[in-house]
Amino acid sequence: MTITPARADSLGLVFDRTDELGTAGHEQVVFCRDPATGLRAIIAIHDTRLGPALGGTRFYPYTSEAKALTDVLRLSQGMTHKAAAAGIVLGGGKAVIIGDPATIKTPALLAAYGRFVDSLSGRYFTAADVGTTAQDLDVVATTTRYVVGSNGGSGDSGFSTACGVFSAMRSTAEHRWGEGGLRGTRVGVEGVGKVGTHLVALLLEEGAEVTVADASEAAVARLLERQPGVTVRHSVLNAPVDVYAPCALGATLTPSSVGTIRASIVCGAANNQLLDSSVARLLQGRGITWVPDYVANAGGLIQVAGEIGDRTADEVRSGIAGIADTMRAILRRSEYSGRLPSEVAADIVAERLAAAPNRDEVRS
């Protein structure tokens, strides 16, 4: 049977895609199924030139296997960029488990998933992501040692991720508005889960006015118990704010949504915020500074990667604080060269990957 490019995309294939992922160069994609527990998972390893792949496991009720595959391919590529931009000697990988964690997540399923991770013999280390927790990782760790971010390790990385986003946001605000940075600005945080909640607290401490939105009424209620001073809206994408912080799922920045944004800076924790790379130039055309997501949200990765490299807590904190310096350097280089911050960040990633040892040399 001949498969046309359009048909390849609709089927969610790996090699014959016509979107940007078709040339992303993933090294390995593993489909995992355990009928006894109902596990259906995909593990994608994008690039291991800098070291073994590290990335979280997303547990989500995808409406099709094709959508799950597209997500894991995008997320794993983003992890390569995130590690390289942060100067971490690890590669990029990601995993997705297909299904509603509220209904199908069981210890047996998580243990089965751990066995699949273990079968990769250390090419992929897993951590938490949307739909998984440090407690879940404790179960995964019963069947594999290739786990970071469990309670037996450095724990939940939400606060570290939020600290990194806050640092990148503040340095960008200072670059754009001067020393006052975020004080007195209006920030719209989309998604108040385990990262967004911490980010809201940091912003309020800094003196920003915060507006939030989340599809989960329970999540908003929990936040309001802690932070009753925030404003709640149905959406913050088009809210009258100075900074838009997407901290839920990705792809909220599209050719159509860009025209509705009223913020001057976009900086958040969500992965893969752009529908595709062309959106970055559309944002620039409207005078909006987009902070590359894989630069801003690297704090959690820096934390859990510290377990593999045996870094001290002080070294981890220093690495997270360094996100601000990385962002300042990107903005200066962007201003000097006339290139987008996203292009400068991509250049840095490419330079670090190109400088990595040849895989064959590493093996020898």
Rank of each mutant, 00 (worst) to 15 (best):
I3K: 04
L13N: 05
R17D: 01
D19C: 02
A24C: 12
H26K: 09
Q28M: 11
Q28E: 15
Q28T: 06
D47H: 02
T48A: 09
R49A: 09
P52H: 02
A53I: 12
A53G: 13
A53M: 09
P61L: 05
P61M: 11
Y62I: 10
T63R: 14
S64C: 06
K67P: 01
V72C: 06
M79Y: 02
G91Y: 03
S119R: 08
T126H: 04
D138G: 02
V139I: 15
T142M: 14
T142D: 10
V148N: 02
G152D: 05
S167E: 15
M169N: 03
E174T: 13
G180P: 01
R183C: 14
A201H: 15
A201R: 14
G207S: 05
G207V: 07
T211Q: 12
A215L: 14
E217T: 11
A218L: 15
R222I: 05
P228R: 04
G229M: 14
G229P: 00
V232N: 12
S235P: 03
Y244I: 08
Y244M: 08
S256R: 15
I265K: 01
V279P: 00
L282K: 00
Q284M: 11
G287V: 07
G287H: 07
I288A: 02
I288L: 05
G300F: 12
L301D: 03
Q303G: 03
G319V: 14
D325Q: 14
Y336C: 01
L340G: 00
D347Y: 04
D347Q: 15
L353W: 13
A356N: 03
N358D: 15
N358S: 11
D360H: 11
V362R: 15
S364G: 13
